[in-house]
Design a protein around this nucleic acid. Sequence first.
DNA 1: GATGAATGAGCGTTCATTCAT
DNA 2: GATGAATGAACGCTCATTCAT
Lengths: 188, 188, 188, 188
Amino acid sequence: MTNSVRGGKRERLAAAAARVLHEQGVEKTTLADIAGAAGVPVGNVYYYFKTKDQLVEAAIGEHGRSLRGLLDRLDELPEPAQRLKALVRGWVDQREVAARYGCPTGTLASELDKRADGLDQAVAALMRELLGWMERQFAALGRDDAPELAVALLSSYQGISLVTNTLRDPELMKAEGERLERWIDALR
Amino acid sequence: MTNSVRGGKRERLAAAAARVLHEQGVEKTTLADIAGAAGVPVGNVYYYFKTKDQLVEAAIGEHGRSLRGLLDRLDELPEPAQRLKALVRGWVDQREVAARYGCPTGTLASELDKRADGLDQAVAALMRELLGWMERQFAALGRDDAPELAVALLSSYQGISLVTNTLRDPELMKAEGERLERWIDALR
Amino acid sequence: MTNSVRGGKRERLAAAAARVLHEQGVEKTTLADIAGAAGVPVGNVYYYFKTKDQLVEAAIGEHGRSLRGLLDRLDELPEPAQRLKALVRGWVDQREVAARYGCPTGTLASELDKRADGLDQAVAALMRELLGWMERQFAALGRDDAPELAVALLSSYQGISLVTNTLRDPELMKAEGERLERWIDALR
Amino acid sequence: MTNSVRGGKRERLAAAAARVLHEQGVEKTTLADIAGAAGVPVGNVYYYFKTKDQLVEAAIGEHGRSLRGLLDRLDELPEPAQRLKALVRGWVDQREVAARYGCPTGTLASELDKRADGLDQAVAALMRELLGWMERQFAALGRDDAPELAVALLSSYQGISLVTNTLRDPELMKAEGERLERWIDALR
DNA sequence: GATGAATGAGCGTTCATTCAT
DNA sequence: GATGAATGAACGCTCATTCAT
């Protein structure tokens, strides 16, 4: 009740975690970094998240929410090919961020994979969600190799994100996005 | 004879660094981990490498050496399409490792990118080397969009490595490899 | 009441630093030494001082505070010659400490001088403060060579501190103190 | 015999130690620093000096030798007052070095004093040697307070060295030197 | 004697986590 | 609930000293 005014701390922390972990990486980010970015005192973080891992989990959750929001918006488009191409265009629009920090989900997946927490499974679930959506679009296009195509498209995005990031050249993602759009058009 | 035990410590350290950094990630790997894997006392590491960063650099160098070795072997094949497909098949052969730890160069690039050491440029140089080789193959195939195709192929590999790793499913890489081989065949 | 135990940790650390650094020297003193002397766990020191250098700085600050306190007390004496001689007598009173550890400011200046931190400038400022005060007293005595006399007096003190310390003989400082008092009396 | 050609390593090490320890301080100087300055491989140092302390001892010995050389030269002057003033003039001539690194013997005394090696006694012996010589000059001037005057003169030099060094102003030593010369002239 | 290599103890510093109020 | 302070284990790195040839 009363904390509807001061509250939202949990949300602020999750949002700050998502952003800062993306920009700095999991290992290089301290709890103080996240707390500072959220404007929350360090000692107070633990009322919302018992461990640093839970903060990472919350960050993954944030990425999941924004992924779902995106897919919902895409679903309003009439044609599956339109939806897929709009997805690609969304990636291209984010190319500056990708060039600086990589794909938020991909870099998280890469880092968390080196650990034994089960957090990697949370990111994997996110990827599976996106894969499933892609698969449905390719199936709607009449492709019976939809699963394979979904993996190919996701891989292309993850790969071009990494390459764009490593070479610090956002234009690479633009060219690859155009190539992927042509590829989608050629599929039916 | 006697220096089978003592000799090549620097090389052993570099090799151990390449392996352990790939398996555990840069941040989660301690100098003691690398020293232990190489069978060298911790204090002695600093006789060969003044900082942890230099050890990372040496690991990158190792990956560079093995990349160059691979490309040299591929160059002995007569046809550019054969070379490219043999490259893809090499990736597929390594799918079990990729499923567990990802692509050595890619994960390194992803992690180092969050830092300001200039080490990221060393990995970037590796990627550019591979890109250049690919470009020459595509050009030899008569394609004037060789640079773009090279980026697409590298991205596909980096992406499928990440997805394979995240979903822990080596078969994904196998299927994608076959798709890429068909794609290469269809290019000319 | 309750914070007689917990309170003023920062001050306790600064005081402990001033004392221990004087007794053991900057380089030979570990953070654990200072923490131990202040009754503070090692890890907690960094809550108050981010680096060892900041602890040294705090110690210099402590010496500055006690210097200012001394000069304020001396300023209450009516005659400049009285003030100067009281200063000298204060030094002589501390001759046992000087014989064991030297002048706190002087030894600090000597050690910090070998470094490039800028900490040496903090000690230099302390010396300039004392020099300025002395100069004002000599000027009040009507001497137009006040700056030179101030340097002579400070040097005599620093020098006799070092000699007293090296030869471990507090009586040297006593004799020199008496000589300096006669010298002051002979000035007007 | 044969090492009259390659030899002198011990001497080179002692001379390098004297110089480097003066410039960098005892604690901040590593064995590698001294070895490097002497052009001797690190591992070889231990054939000449079993410990770092023995190298410090050798450095003190070097300072002793040069002190004795100086006093011998001064002894050739006919008058005790001339000898004392020539000593002072020698200090003033070295004021640039003093401004940068302090008095070699004094800074050594200050640093070694914080330790329990007995090395401090070796420096103390040096000071006593100089004190004795001064005492003889003052006695030859007919002063029965020669011991006290010797301490006063040594202190003035040590003090002005420290102040000159801390304030990085060689001119301070010049002015004080002139004052000391006038003081000597006024003694008889 | 000479030398590169080896060794291990210790230092300053960081940080996730917990505690007391 | 909220907060500043406390805690300790771990890390990267240095260096005097010793070893093997």
